[in-house]
Each structure stands twice: as C-alpha cells, then as structure tokens.
C-alpha cells in the first residue's frame, strides 16, 4: 500500500539533508514508526502524507507514484487513499459531527452514506453525538471522532500521529485497539508514528528513527 525509497529532505536554510529509512506496508499490515523528539519523525510523516515534497527519493501509494504528483493531484490522492489521525484534533467547526464525517467522504470522492456514518459512530459509542457541535465534545470524544473521520471513507492507509502520547495506559490500549479494529474492518494498512515507548511492546513491526546527528 505504501512504499518509500531513499527519502531525503532538506529544510530551507537547513544545514544538512535528513535521510530516512525506507518504509513498506502492505494492506492489512501495521507498522510502528518510533522516534524520540528531534528524530524527524514528523517530517517523515509529512513526507509520507505528501504534505512535503522530498528533495530526493520517492513515495509510492497504492502502487502509484505519489510524491512526484503535482500539489492538487497529491491532495486528491491523499484524500482518497489515506485517513490521518492528528495528534491535535481539528474539525470544521461550523459543521456537526456527522457533517464533518460526510465532508471527509465527499472530499475523498465517495458517495454520501448516512448509514455508514451512523454505524461508525455507534461502534465508537458516539451515536448520540451525531448532530452535536464539534466544540461541544470532550477531548476523548474528539479523538474518537477524528479516528472515525480517518476511516469513514474506507482508506487503504491509516496514518496516526502520536495518537496515544497524551493518554493513560488504559486509554492507550483502547485507542490502539480501536485503530487496529478499524484498520482490520476496512483491510487498511496502519502506520503509527510516535515517541510513546509504551507502544513498542504492543506492536511487533516497527522502525526506529535515530536522532539526527
């Protein structure tokens, strides 16, 4: 589903070029990308998600070139194939919970599916929040809605950025199993990027990033 080759990135005015290990995940697989602060893991995540263009190397998504696409085409491909769970949750605040999910489907090019949205929210214990304003949700509810939004359009790859770093052990387990269950349900690949060492024991496939020299 995702394959990176020889990714390098140099920040404007940066002293040296960052080099990243190659990643490869098949559908249904999961991979933990573990690195402490300052290892460039956010940069790598943004490269993988096509939010930055690598100075060298490339990213292939669903068997097709991704990182070399023009911006608009990359945005569309990302919307269609990826679902991203950000560390800080953001929503379109003028829309309700279900409208935010509907928007994710629409932007991914999927037909409207109210039943799917309702079913998903029920699964996450949020059925009663269907028409709630996103501002009115608790932090935990917001995170669950953002997971729902990342999977509502059935993406082939779920990217999660520090999904557990602010959570206690019990909630860490809950969120991890939620992500796994949703990935499994849609047959998606799951890539978790984190510095949270607790996940190390819970996931077998992992790549560790080394501090940049």
């Amino acid at each position: 589903m995702l394959k990176t080759e020889g990714l390098h990135y140099q920040y404007e005015g940066g002293e040296s070029e960052l080099a990243f290990p190659d990643l490869s995940i098949q559908k249904g697989d999961e991979l933990l990308l573990l690195g402490a602060s300052g290892t460039g893991k956010t940069t790598l995540l943004h490269l993988v998600a096509g939010m930055r263009t690598p100075t060298r190397g490339q990213v292939a998504l669903a068997g097709e070139a991704f990182s070399t696409l023009p911006t608009a085409a990359r945005d569309r491909a990302r919307g269609r194939h990826m679902g991203i769970v950000f560390q800080t949750t953001h929503f379109v605040r003028s829309l309700s919970v279900s409208e935010n999910l509907a928007l994710a489907r629409a932007l991914a090019g999927c037909p409207p599916d109210e039943a799917r949205i309702q079913g998903l929210l029920e699964e996450l214990g949020l059925a009663h929040k269907l028409h709630a304003r996103v501002d009115a949700l608790s932090v935990g509810e917001q995170q669950r809605v953002s997971i729902a939004r990342a999977v509502v359009h059935g993406p082939g790859l779920i990217l999660a950025d520090e999904p557990t770093s602010a959570l206690d052990d019990a909630n860490t387990d809950a969120v991890l199993s939620l992500l796994r269950k949703q990935a499994e349900r849609t047959g998606a690949a799951l890539l978790i990027v984190t510095h949270d060492q607790r996940l190390k024991d819970r996931m077998s496939d992992r790549v560790e990033l080394n501090p940049i020299a």
Binding site: A49, M51, T71, A72, A73, D75, R76, R78, G79, R80, I84, F86, T88, H90, F91, V92, R93, L103, A104, L107, A108, G109, R149
Partner: peptide
C-alpha cells in the same frame, strides 16, 4: 488548522 485539515482530507488548494 481547519483549512490545512481540508487539504489533508483531499481538498486541493483551488
């Protein structure tokens, strides 16, 4: 963030 989010969800800059 909201606008950036729309981009990550597949909305092109235009």
């Amino acid at each position: 963030y909201e606008l950036a989010l729309l981009r990550t969800m597949g909305a092109p800059p235009q």
